[in-house]
Design a protein around this nucleic acid. Structure first.
Lengths: 326, 326
DNA sequence: GGTATTTACGTAAGTACTAACATAAATCCC
DNA sequence: GGGATTTATGTTAGTACTTACGTAAATACC
């Protein structure tokens, strides 16, 4: 197993927080040396009130990028300590309008040379080191904007798709045949007696009769399964198709179905049918797209009380090539 | 008064924290989508244990840049949740040796594609935007290292020195004459009756007799004061020298003294003396460097019980030019 | 070899936030 | 103009840390 050392970007969160704390501590230290009672964390708030004039809690929160709760609590404290003043907005009695008090105006006057010193020193060092921290940060902030999570999810899916394998029955994976089916049955219907029997004894119930059980593997994880059961000579039932909830949308079902059809052909089956439910729209669409066709009547001797759909597979150009992508 | 909008570097702390939170949230979102129970904040710890093998709490804390308390508390939680395992170090029974449990090893296996997706997406976006976040950050971390606070303090001092002014008596500043003297007297000795009288009525006690009271101003802040009192015609006493604690080391005393000597000369004084205490070493050094000389005996008719030093000023090349720097 | 110091860690309390909920005032919508 | 919705804020509880402090084990020092 490879080392994780190269995933430096993933530790960025904690690194940034550490730097943030360091900078706050630096500012506090400078304030302390100068005998100012200010705190570094107040700067965005003070700057805003100084430059933009009195503001309501919500407006401040939006502009300094914190929640209104944070601003509300900070404001409480700064008001009781005499840094800020409150005037109720006559136009909107919900609003609490905050403005700098004389104490903070005075502190800002006194802090100005310190702020200049901090900024100048940092700018000089950045320039000497050849980095533009503010520019880089702004760019970074922009690029981790709204569509980052979807883009990453898409990448994950792409790599999952590439790593998805479908394998034939393996006794070591037997429990997953039960688990995956039981999970979704419990969610959409309930476990019938026949389900329990078939799922817990696939060797006897499926394989012994000349059927097959397939598993979809993502790495070492079993994310999907389905079975091909021989009902009578040459007549195969596609059944027990289940895909793990958190791996929907990867084309797992399609890959399983394609392999099932392949097996059906290899074993020279004549009829391939399935029973399902109109509640399972996405599954029905998959079956249709792979060559199954709705039958006008239900299967005469159905095992399942929940099924209200009966489909039979017919060789078509689409089903013959069985594409791997969704 | 100018706007503070340009002090972008001062708001860096809160910006970095905000980005940090965003990144954690991103990682948590990706983990959630994949059905992993991991949290983004655990990454540095997990990576360390994965790459370096079992570690003690303190060792982990040092390497991931957090306090041992933070690691201890996180470890408690991860152990109870079954992610980590503990083995007591036989060589040192104080140590708690943490290692990855099977649960986290499995989770790491499953998280790997997600990590790759995150890193690749971020790298691609950074490359497209032409920034090297990791490089910039490393550089920045290095340049806010140990000697930053002193360098900034030095800058502050330099700008303070440049902004320091010494002015003659102004009734509006009278209270500061009292405040500054009373502060240090209370700290090193105690207020004597004569102090209180002189300090509260400088006009009658000092100015009326032809003396002067000086103030050192930093911006609008009064940071030092001293008085030149006429004892008898042509005989001046340098007294009531006081500098605000948080503005020591700026050369305030030297500037005040230089101006006092200037005034003494302008008023064509013949003798300039002072009384002080051997306890006040820095002050005595200043007096010496400005041309005062120790007298072998104490002043015969001293007003002050605390004084055990008696000095008289003598014109010297050094005192004539009275340099402004420390 | 016993005492002082250091180290490793745990625990308690505090801070700076967030998320989730509650509430009153303003606004919208016919 | 009266009910539904939205907005602005406060409140509560929780999280992820920190600092400060306490304690046992290891180490250093005569």
């Amino acid at each position: 197993m490879h080392a994780l050392a190269d995933y430096g970007l993933l530790a960025l969160g904690s690194r940034l927080r550490a730097i943030s704390e360091q900078l706050y501590a630096l500012a506090d230290e400078v304030y302390r040396l100068r005998g100012l009672g200010l705190q570094g964390r107040w700067f965005p708030l003070l700057r805003l009130l100084h430059d933009q004039g009195p503001q309501s809690v919500g407006s401040i929160a939006a502009q300094i990028g914190q929640t209104h709760s944070a601003v509300s609590q900070l404001a409480d404290r700064l008001v009781t300590e005499g840094w800020l003043e409150v005037v109720d907005d006559p136009a909107d009695r919900r609003r609490r309008c905050l403005s700098l008090g004389e104490r903070s105006r005075e502190a800002i006057r006194q802090a100005r040379p310190a702020w200049q010193a901090i900024v100048q020193e940092l700018e000089q060092r950045c320039a000497a080191a050849g980095i533009d921290m503010l520019q880089t940060l702004s760019t970074f902030e922009a690029l981790i904007g709204a569509d980052l999570a979807p883009a990453i999810a898409a990448r994950c899916q792409a790599s999952d798709r590439a790593n998805l394998r479908v394998v034939d029955f393996d006794a070591a994976l037997r429990e997953h045949f039960y688990r995956l089916n039981a999970d979704w049955l419990r969610k959409y219907f309930y476990l019938e007696e026949i389900d329990h029997r078939v799922l817990s004894q696939p060797e006897q119930e499926i394989l012994a009769g000349g059927g097959e059980v397939l598993f979809a593997l993502l790495g070492e994880q079993v994310v999907g399964t389905c079975a091909l059961k021989v009902e009578s000579p040459g007549v195969f039932e596609l059944t027990k198709m289940a895909v793990d909830e958190s791996h929907q949308g990867l084309g797992v079902g399609r890959r399983l179905l394609a392999r099932a059809i392949e097996v059906f052909r290899q074993r020279q089956g004549k009829t391939l049918f399935l029973e399902s439910s109109t509640k399972l729209t996405p599954a029905l669409n998959l079956y249709l797209s792979m060559g199954f066709e709705h039958q006008p009547t239900l299967k005469p001797d159905s095992h399942y009380s929940r099924s209200d759909v009966y489909m039979i597979w017919r060789e078509t150009p689409a089903s013959a090539t069985a594409p791997a992508q969704a």
